[in-house]
Design a protein around this nucleic acid. Sequence first.
DNA 1: CCGCATCCATTTTGATACTG
DNA 2: CAGTATCAAAATGGATGCGG
Lengths: 121, 121
Amino acid sequence: MTAQNGAGVFDEDCPSRLVLNHVASRWGTLIVSALRQGPLRFHALRDRIGGISEKMLSQTLRQLVEDGLVERTVEPTTPPRVSYELTPLGGELAGHVQALLDWITLRADEIVAARSRHRPG
Amino acid sequence: MTAQNGAGVFDEDCPSRLVLNHVASRWGTLIVSALRQGPLRFHALRDRIGGISEKMLSQTLRQLVEDGLVERTVEPTTPPRVSYELTPLGGELAGHVQALLDWITLRADEIVAARSRHRPG
DNA sequence: CCGCATCCATTTTGATACTG
DNA sequence: CAGTATCAAAATGGATGCGG
């Protein structure tokens, strides 16, 4: 059964809603997807995700870490190397996120064509 | 192949990024999911999606309509009935979105437990 | 009443500089 | 390098107004 009742994410106060807001946020999906192939360091992530600010990267990562979807690792070198990696739970999530992103990538042209039909010009 | 190069959604200027920002927005996933079972009128949608404002519902719906993912139908009665429905393209998308939402609903408790481990208290 | 558009207060996001 | 502090810009929500 596919969560079609009033509960779950449709309920403003349900905890799942919090998770949704972290994951299906402007940057959440991109970060999760970027980490699919393995750990990445802070600046590597920033460079991979076009347009993200350091502030939002930092903030979104912190949320994902709190949610147990991403793990933060610090190697005590100088300068310290901090890398981020999906947890097993995050890995599950990443599969679904990637499917969504792949579909969007696949259909982007078609959708853009639809846009030009709905917008004047 | 699963879109792992620098192109697509990771490129700030790629059209797919626009679509992602509409779909993976705070309300986009919920609207798409809510419409999965059939057409809904404006207020029905608002009531279904806890916490959404009429303004954001209206705005997000307009984006999804522009993207060709949702169709807007006006019955010329008094008062007019305006209903929203997924297009075939939107239906494809909804499948992926629903998978994501279902996973989040399923794992919400586990994730909340993880949060309490990462946050003081 | 229904489906929005508009105005304004609050929240979120972004650019840039700065620190350990 | 890996962030945080700060301030400006943009997104958001609530209230309200309005034509049908």
